[in-house]
Computed example of a mutant assay.
Amino acid sequence: MPVPSEYAARRRALIRRHHPDVGGDAEVLAAELDALDREFAQRRAVVPPRVVANPPLRVRPTGRVRRLRRSATRAITRLRGRLPRSVPGSRRYFEI
């Protein structure tokens, strides 16, 4: 299968050569880009898609881990409420 950077390099070269801003023709540019896309689509169709033999496992945290995470979050929130306003990350609430 072609490396994506090869496709990008060839596409950039075609655009540099045929872009209307540099004196090229828009129709020629469109035709060349279509031909390039068709060529790379054929190359991609030849190579079978890669199959992942062992998909990554998703592990849910246990009850202990969830409780620890909750208590740590509460402790951090309490600490942030006690920090002076000049400290980044502090929380200050006031009544309106």
Rank of each mutant, 00 (worst) to 15 (best):
M1C: 03
P2N: 03
P2C: 06
V3D: 12
S5F: 02
S5T: 08
R10N: 04
R11V: 02
R12F: 06
R12P: 01
R12W: 07
R12Y: 05
A13N: 05
L14T: 04
H19E: 10
P20K: 03
P20H: 06
V22K: 08
G23S: 02
G24T: 04
G24S: 03
E27N: 12
V28I: 08
A30Y: 03
A30F: 00
A31T: 00
E32M: 08
L33E: 02
A35E: 14
L36G: 07
D37I: 01
E39H: 01
R43C: 01
R43E: 12
R43I: 10
V46W: 02
P49D: 09
R50W: 07
V52A: 05
A53L: 12
N54E: 01
N54W: 10
P56V: 02
P56W: 00
R58Q: 10
R58K: 14
T62F: 00
R67Q: 14
L68K: 08
L68S: 11
R69Y: 06
R69C: 04
R69Q: 13
R69M: 05
R70M: 13
R70D: 09
S71K: 11
A72Q: 11
A72N: 07
I76D: 11
I76L: 15
R85F: 07
R85L: 14
S86K: 11
S90W: 09
R91H: 11
R92Q: 10
F94E: 11
E95Q: 12
I96C: 03
